[in-house]
Structures are given as structure tokens and as C-alpha cells.
Amino acid sequence: MGQFIQLVVDGLSNGSIYAVLALAIVLVNQATGLINFAQGGMAVFSAYITWLLTEHGLSLILAILLSVLASFVLGALVERLVMRRFERGDPDTAVVVTIGLLTLITGICGWLWTYNNQQFRSLFSLTTVSIFGAAVSIRSIGTFAVIAVIMLFLQALFLGTKFGLALRAVAINPKSAALSGLPVGRLLMAGWGLAAALGAVAGALVAPQLTLTPGMMDTALVYALAAVILGGQSSPVGVVVAAWLIGVVENLAAVYVHFIGYDLKVAVPFILTFVVLVVRPQGLFGRKVVARV
């Protein structure tokens, strides 16, 4: 039983990291209708900024906050300078652009900071506490708590502020939003900036576990995308629930299903997604998209 609880809590903690990245992807997807494959790469870049600042003697908390700010600016710039031109065009081209961005950003990280692993300090201590007989690490609880706070913040931002309302308006119908006087371009930049800032948090949370490398987020990106599909591309809540589900199920499968084990647990979200898609193509919480001709 102790092991089971431990696995579930660790799964929720991992799932939380996928959830942040998935939320960032949904944020961009809602605003621009495209999937940003570079989201993970941008998060790695943010993590490198954090790491660089701590290497220069800043405290970790301050470094993360500065990196979040810098990521917001960089994300907005990427939208303005690179993505803007492809947003109204063919969505498949835009996706290829994000894949190009992923390669470029990973390449920049590798070029500037080499492909060697860098040690990244953890925000939370690694000591464990005992809950119902299970040894649960402070890090797992801390990660989960950080994500919960971020979600509440986002929820408040989107539902409780004028800025959030404007963002949602742009997402639903950019043309009408522009006609009612909203600065659509700047709001899109803000959307990308927010997504990049979220990525910075995800990067700082995952880097201590995986150690910092340019390809650190590749697997997390895969999990996040699976969560996006599973949860339904249009539903933030659904995506977070799906990410937790994936985190828990893969942890349980790694231990209890002999064939899967630790090396093949990356297949779990996809088996899960595969099954769900055959039954519900729109995802667990998504709406059916109807095209108007």
C-alpha cells in the first residue's frame, strides 16, 4: 500500500510538469490554432537562463523569477518576429515553423552551453516525509503545490480580469476582436509570452530531476502533447486532468505491468491516447469541432 501511495504521489508530481507544458501548448493553441512543438525547447532555454543566473550567484528563487520574466519577453518576440507571418496561412506550414524553431533553439542551447549535462539545483529538498506509511518526497509535494497555485492564478487571470477576457476574445474570433478595438497583435504576443513563462516554470521544476541538457524536454513534450490530445485540445481543465492521469498511470504501469517496466513507460500515454481516440475522437473533455463551409 505504501508503495502504491508513493507511486501515485510521484505520478501526480510528474503529471504536474506535463500539465504546465500542456497548458502552455493549449494557451498557444487557443490563441492561434496551432500546436507549438518548440514549447519544450523554449522551456529548456528558460531553464538555461535560470541556471546561468544561479551560476552567477543569484538565489534560485530570484533566478527563476527573472527567467520567467525574460521568457515572457522572448516568447512575445518569437511570436512577433517569427510566427506572425505564418499565423494566417496554412496551419501545417506554421507547425513546420515551430519544428524549425525547436531545432534552432535546441541548437542554440547546445552551441552556447554544450550538450553536456549540467547540474541544476532543486527548489525543494529531497527529504521524504511519511504519509500513511508511504515515503513521499518534499519535491513531489512541492511541485504539485506550485502547479496548483499556477492553475488557480491562470484561472483567475482568464476568468477574472479584463486582460483575460481580451485574450479569450482573440482566441474565439480574432477578426471580430480586432473590429471591437482589441489590439490583437499585442494580445497574441502576450499569449505566447505567457506560454513561454509557464514553460520557464516547468523547466525549473524538471531540470533538477533530469539534469539540464538541450534535449531535456523532448520526452516531457511528448507527454504534454499526449495530455493535450487526451484532454481535448480546447479544454485547459481537461488537459490538466489528463496530464495527472498520464503521470499516475505510467508510474503504476512501470511497476505493476511487467512488460512495460521503466524503459517503456513512455509508451503508456500513447496506448492510453490510442484507446481513447478510437472511442472519443474529440478527447475526454474536448468539444467536436465543426467546420463552417
Binding site: 509508451a267 500513447f270 490510442f274
Partner: peptide
């Protein structure tokens, strides 16, 4: 058969899984 059920970009997302799952599977 599964990926094409989802419109749009889901094929891109699902096909990303093939190399990611393929490498550990080949080792296994």
C-alpha cells in the same frame, strides 16, 4: 487508422510518439 480520426494536427502529435517509443522498444 487511429491518428487520422482526429482532424488537423493530431497526426503530427501522434507520429511524434513513434520515434520516442520506438527507441526503447528496439532496445527492449
Amino acid at each position: 487508422l487511429a491518428a487520422a480520426r482526429l482532424g488537423g494536427l493530431a497526426i503530427a502529435m501522434l507520429t511524434l510518439a513513434l520515434p520516442i517509443v520506438g527507441v526503447p522498444l528496439a532496445k527492449r
